[in-house]
Amino acid sequence: MTTQPASRPAYEIPTHLGAAAHAALDADRAARDQLGRAMLVATAAAVRDILTGYEPDAPFDASAVELVEGEDGSLFPNGRYWTLAGEERTFTETVGAAEAGNGIHGMSEWTAYLNDSTRDVWYDLCTEQPDRDGRPAYRLDLLPAAALQLDESAPAPVRQRGQMVEVLVCANDSDRYPAMVDPDDQRDGYVKPWFDLDTVRRIAEQTQADAARYGHDSVDTVHVLEGGDCAVRHDGSTEPLKYAVVLVVCWMYLDGEKREQAVQVLQPNKDGRYAVGGHDWQWYALGGQLNPQIPFRP
């Protein structure tokens, strides 16, 4: 059989194939990145909802959640999470078995999209954990996950000079607290955090425990004195009033020339926050993976 040479092309390829293929790949990559960001934010929201009973403005304490990789490569929650202080807990311990089970089931609908196709997005926000039943496990940092920009095309908000931002801060490599800081108010890279009263109570408890363990000469202690009263309205009814006084005691000053500076009464700012320790305690901001940011650049 004689093979006849082709007299014309069997088919034609569009001249713009290369550009079209690259555009399609770029669009696919952008879509997967957008999906990963959205599912990470949804996961952070699901943890909040479990711990607050779906009250978005209610206080809650969570900094990370554990996700386990399934056989298909997607992640799913196993009910473990960590508080801002680094304490490991389970949703069942905190909210009960029924609420935890329903919440974990709902969260799984979002984490199922955290898989190989979106790994480039979620992996950098995770720390590898010991395997769980032979499956890879990861600790997802919820603070940067919740702060991800959902619309990449939207311009990032411009921070005004002196504007506060919310971060986790630490002064001893172990105890971490949420605070508002002014990135422009730093000393040698250390920030001046402003804490709400609930966080001040936590700091007070921890500093007093440290002083009892290591001695008052080496630890400044924080104390929250609270009281109440009743105000009489014009109609004769009463309104309960609550007061709080925050003290910082530097015990090493009591026997020296600085004894008059040994006790400091902290004044709250207009938002009711207290600058415990100021710059002197060398608070530093924590970034992704809870790494120190010295200096802090939001």
Rank of each mutant, 00 (worst) to 15 (best):
L254S: 05
L247K: 12
V249W: 05
E239Q: 11
K242G: 15
A244I: 06
D229I: 02
V246Y: 01
K242S: 13
H234L: 15
C250T: 05
V224A: 10
Y253N: 00
D235G: 04
L254F: 02
L241Y: 02
V232L: 02
V249P: 04
E226F: 04
D235N: 14
V222K: 10
W251C: 03
A244D: 03
P240K: 12
H223T: 15
T238H: 08
G236W: 03
E226V: 07
K242M: 08
V222M: 11
D255T: 00
V224E: 14
D229N: 14
V245C: 07
V232H: 03
T238V: 09
W251N: 07
M252Y: 12
G227M: 01
G227C: 08
V246T: 08
L247N: 06
C230F: 13
T238M: 07
V222E: 07
C250A: 11
D235I: 03
Y253W: 01
L225V: 14
H234W: 12
Y253A: 06
H223F: 13
T238D: 01
W251Q: 03
S237V: 06
E226M: 09
V245Q: 11
L225F: 11
S237H: 09
H234I: 08
T238K: 01
L241Q: 11
E239G: 03
G236T: 07
R233G: 12
V222G: 02
V232Q: 00
D235K: 04
V246A: 08
L247R: 10
G227K: 06
S237K: 12
A244T: 08
L225E: 13
P240H: 12
E239K: 05
V249S: 05
T221S: 10
W251Y: 10
E239V: 09
Y253P: 04
Y253E: 02
Y243W: 10
R233H: 13
V222Y: 05
Y253M: 00
W251F: 07
V248T: 10
L225P: 01
P240W: 11
V246F: 02
